[in-house]
């Protein structure tokens, strides 16, 4: 936990870069998931899932992604603990300084994302690893798993839909602060471009959150 190996700034650099990397993952993930909405026959989604599940490059990349999460979470927790220690005895009067709201709750929204991640992997990834996904009956492409059916079955359960929607909203709060913060952390603050980065951050947070949310909602009501 000491700063002997990596300074505070180096840790922030690593965290920010991993965070931005996770953003690209979310964009890809959402694009694939939306296929389920646009194609109720599940053919496109299942083909995409099949590709992601079998392509050797993606298989390797999957571990890079896990490492990205692990590093981001590890430094997030380490930095946060240092930050709590740095205050020492706190104030009696609640601090009233003007500040970015979501930045105050990054560790909490982060922990929620982590819990969500575990449950989410349990819902889909683990079943797939255990080979417990039913076979897709639709295409000629024999042996393809029906990942889409798994998703549809899950989201026919209203409780799960509500759970996903709430957790996705909390993820949105994390993302909203995260994007522009990462650019500031890697030293990219510029009179001309920073307003654009901030705008893009809000845009991405809203689009990613709304995008992921409409999937369970649409499936539930379909």
């Amino acid at each position: 936990m000491s700063n002997r190996y990596y300074s505070s700034l180096t840790k922030k650099y690593i965290m920010a870069l991993m965070g931005l990397f996770l953003f690209t993952f979310l964009v890809v993930h959402l694009s694939i998931n939306l296929l389920l909405v646009f194609d109720p026959t599940r053919v496109l989604f299942n083909e995409a899932a099949h590709f992601m599940g079998t392509n050797p490059f993606i298989q390797i990349f999957q571990w890079v992604l896990f490492a990205g999460f692990a590093i981001h979470i590890f430094y997030g927790v380490v930095l946060q603990i240092q930050n709590w220690i740095a205050r020492g005895k706190g104030y009696k009067r609640k601090a009233l300084s003007e500040e970015s709201i979501f930045s105050k709750y990054m560790i909490y929204t982060g922990i929620v994302i982590f819990i969500f991640l575990v449950i989410h992997l349990g819902n889909f990834f683990v079943l797939k690893m255990q080979g417990r996904v039913p076979e897709f009956e639709h295409t000629a492409n024999a042996g393809m798993e029906d990942m889409g059916l798994l998703v549809v079955n899950l989201f026919k359960n209203g409780g799960y839909v509500i759970f996903y929607v709430i957790l996705l909203l909390i993820m949105g709060f994390h993302l909203d602060h995260a994007f522009q913060s990462a650019f500031q952390s890697i030293g990219w603050n510029h009179r001309k471009y920073t307003p654009f980065i901030k705008g893009l951050g809000h845009f991405l947070a809203i689009v990613l959150t709304a995008g992921f949310i409409i999937i369970p909602v649409i499936i539930y009501y379909r």
């Binding site: 700063n3 300074s7 505070s8 700034l9 840790k11 922030k12 930095l79 240092q82 930050n83 220690i85 740095a86 205050r87 601090a95 300084s97 003007e98 500040e99 970015s100 930045s103 105050k104 990054m106 602060h177 522009q180 913060s181 500031q184 952390s185």
Partner: peptide, 24 residues
């Protein structure tokens, strides 16, 4: 590099780009 190392050693916290500093 020296100032950042010193800042860490002294036990100041890490920046989370909250920007209360600028406001105050």
């Amino acid at each position: 590099q020296k100032m950042v190392a010193k800042m860490d050693d002294l036990g100041f916290g890490n920046c989370t780009n909250t920007y209360a500093c600028e406001a105050e």
